[in-house]
């Protein structure tokens, strides 16, 4: 059985998909050097406001001075939702920096958060 055809097909398909994703993203007008438009939000929230969104069905978190709405992300997170639940509605910087055995989340994870940014954390109580 020759493996040339399936391997070569996968090789060509891989680059076709990579170029398609890059091309579509470029054509869609999003400048890859900047976060998407929804990331820029002028809204500010207090920690008390964040605390009202403390369930898996409505999960906000404050991380390093910014507020994120992770409600739609919960089910995509690699670990079980129960791991995230305690951090919903609270200051979760520590959670981001101490997953597993005290390891920080990857840079990719930090970048991916930008998609869920909804505002800044107000310094007022």
């Amino acid at each position: 059985m020759s493996l040339k055809k399936p391997v070569y097909t996968a090789f060509v398909a891989f680059w076709a998909c990579v170029f398609t994703i890059v091309l579509l993203d470029s054509l869609s007008g999003t400048d890859s050097g900047h976060p998407p438009p929804q990331a820029h939000s002028p809204d500010t929230y207090t920690l008390a406001e964040v605390a009202r969104h403390d369930t898996l069905d409505d999960c906000w978190m404050a991380i390093e001075g910014k507020v994120y709405d992770f409600t739609d992300y919960i089910e995509r997170h690699p670990t079980e939702p129960s791991v995230l639940e305690p951090w919903c509605g609270s200051e979760a910087t520590e959670g981001m920096k101490t997953k597993g055995y005290g390891r920080n989340h990857s840079q990719r994870a930090w970048r991916a958060m930008e998609d869920y940014l909804i505002g800044e954390l107000s310094e007022e109580e």
Binding site: V22, T30, R76, R111, D115
Partner: peptide, 12 residues
């Protein structure tokens, strides 16, 4: 999530 996220997943 977004096309942007797909692209940055490939090219961080």
């Amino acid at each position: 999530t977004s096309l942007y996220a797909a692209r940055t997943m490939l090219f961080p």
